[in-house]
Design a protein around this nucleic acid. Structure first.
Lengths: 307, 307
DNA sequence: GACCGTTACGTTTGTCGTAACTATG
DNA sequence: CATAGTTACGACAAACGTAACGGTC
């Protein structure tokens, strides 16, 4: 057994069992990959992959089990090198954050500035994507830290940290009939076309849940993944908006009315997540600490298994 | 990085940093081991070992961290092969139980018979040792399951299962003055020379604790690691004995009196333990189930991380 | 027939053990 | 001076890529 064989197996699963693609990803030849898999299967005495003739089409039962430990082996091997790098080059390298548009646009700028000042030699890679893509990036080791209000906290193979909680706000153009009311209800909102976040983004399920619980069916006529787009269309008078509170700026958004006192929708929690068992470098810990200062560094280290 | 390098590092730590010994353990040459270590250190860019000139004398700070992940990597790699073997040869192989004399002599015989009937092709290796040796054997992967009343439950890197609880019993020769009393107290016992288990064996600390709590100093004139020895000397009239209840057999030990109703010493729990993160084969799970039938197989699988 | 995986083979690279050398206590 | 670790070197084996071959859809 060697690491290259294990990498071939892991990548084969990630590439949907297409060995040619695996070879490209691993910068090697396709026959090599084929051989690695066969050799490992031979050594272990089990068929890891289900086959239709020559083509691989999936994992066998035992293959699933093997894959699990292959992942772990490679992860721990990665930890050896990451821990070493953390030691030799304490303040340089790359930190990859997988996050949503909302966090990247509103919550992170302040943190990024602070972080860059403290770690000028660390390349900070912000990768935007849907919550589901964030989860996958963390699983595959393509990102070090995930940050979103959705999906992350439900993964049992992640360690998570609550950063802050936030509410949805109702925004309308100035002079909209709703602005006559001081405290509009969900029923009032349901009277108007609504513009809000895409399904699966930025607490959207909380919005749906709130209306559903009151037996209301809101007319969601348009969805977007970012508040800027939503605000633009609200400004145009196409509908009323439901956006995250931090997306409303009373000065810049002076053409919009925002019900800052109204709480109609359950609060959301922005969550930081790290893959369980993956070594997070010191500056990754510092990043978490910067986003969620209420958590002690000691606790972060313990929770991610570095103590 | 390759597995042989990692094995060299792990074994170097286990062999107290004597490379010659490492080479023998790994059935390879000493220069090879030396090279493996140097190559790995070079690749990682860190010094894993502290040196006095050429001699290795210990781990560096970063070496401790590296060693941790090296252990884990090798463990997970082992899990790949164990899981595979568990699949191909479901009912054959070796199961190594590290246990104390007491468990091997009194608790395990019934279980072993049952186990052998169900898994006739599995070699059952019972390794007797002190609780501390049991802990070490589990840590180093020399045993699959540990079973003892001491030490095991305190290890945080083990998964443990409570098998049963038991009490110490007072035994005396027939006609001993103590037998006049129906319920002797600890103070009564302290009047006579006592024979019991060695420090660190079979709940001995409970015995000391009980006397200590009442401000008594028992005259322990002899210790042994097994009840047979203790009983033999009690029979000779040298002193009264304190042994585990299952070690007294009213028929075979008809020359001895046993206070079966007296509970003077806090109960002990016999504990099964498995190293966290180590794949335990099906027949290992069956063994645990046989020793502790009150625990469901499902729960065992979950607790050892196989579900 | 286009795509995908395996077989065959020669080159390159890496790995290992022996022997000689050097340092430590 | 005995024990422990490193350097040097040659033999062997393993790993890889290219090219040709065989199935699958």
């Amino acid at each position: 057994m060697n690491f290259q064989q294990l990498r071939s197996v892991r990548e084969t699963i990630r590439c949907n069992f297409n060995l040619t693609e695996v070879a490209n990803t691993l910068y090697t030849s396709q026959p090599g990959v084929s051989r690695h898999i066969r050799e490992l299967e031979e050594e272990l005495g089990v068929e890891i992959f289900e086959r239709h003739g020559k083509r691989l089409i999936g994992l066998t039962d035992i293959g699933h089990q093997v894959a699990r430990y292959v992942e772990r082996t490679l992860r721990e091997a990665q930890n050896i090198t990451t821990a070493s790098n953390n030691y030799t080059a304490r303040d340089s390298g790359t930190l990859t954050i997988a996050t949503t548009h909302t966090q990247a646009r509103y919550a992170l700028p302040k943190v990024v500035l602070e972080f860059r000042k403290r770690f000028p030699n660390v390349t900070l890679a912000l990768q935007q994507g849907s919550p589901r893509q964030i989860v996958e990036a963390l699983r595959e080791g393509r990102a070090d830290i995930g940050f979103a209000s959705e999906a992350l906290h439900r993964q049992t193979d992640f360690v998570h940290f609550s950063a802050y909680t936030w509410l949805h706000r109702v925004i309308t153009p100035l002079g909209h009939p709703l602005t006559q009311l001081e405290h509009p209800t969900l029923a009032d909102l349901a009277q108007y076309p609504i513009i809000t976040y895409e399904q699966g983004f930025t607490g959207r399920h909380r919005v749906d849940e709130a209306f559903y619980k009151e037996g209301l069916t809101p007319q969601v006529i348009m969805t977007a993944i970012d508040a800027d787009t939503i605000k633009t269309y609200v400004q145009l008078g196409i509908g009323i908006g439901l956006v995250a509170e931090h997306a409303y700026d009373p000065i810049k958004d002076d053409g919009l009315h925002c019900f800052t006192q109204t709480q109609l929708i359950a609060p959301n929690t922005a969550t930081l997540a790290v893959r369980e068992g993956v070594y997070l470098r010191d500056y990754g810990v510092a990043f978490i600490k910067a986003v969620a200062p209420q958590i002690s560094t000691q606790e972060i280290l313990e929770r991610i298994g570095r103590s």
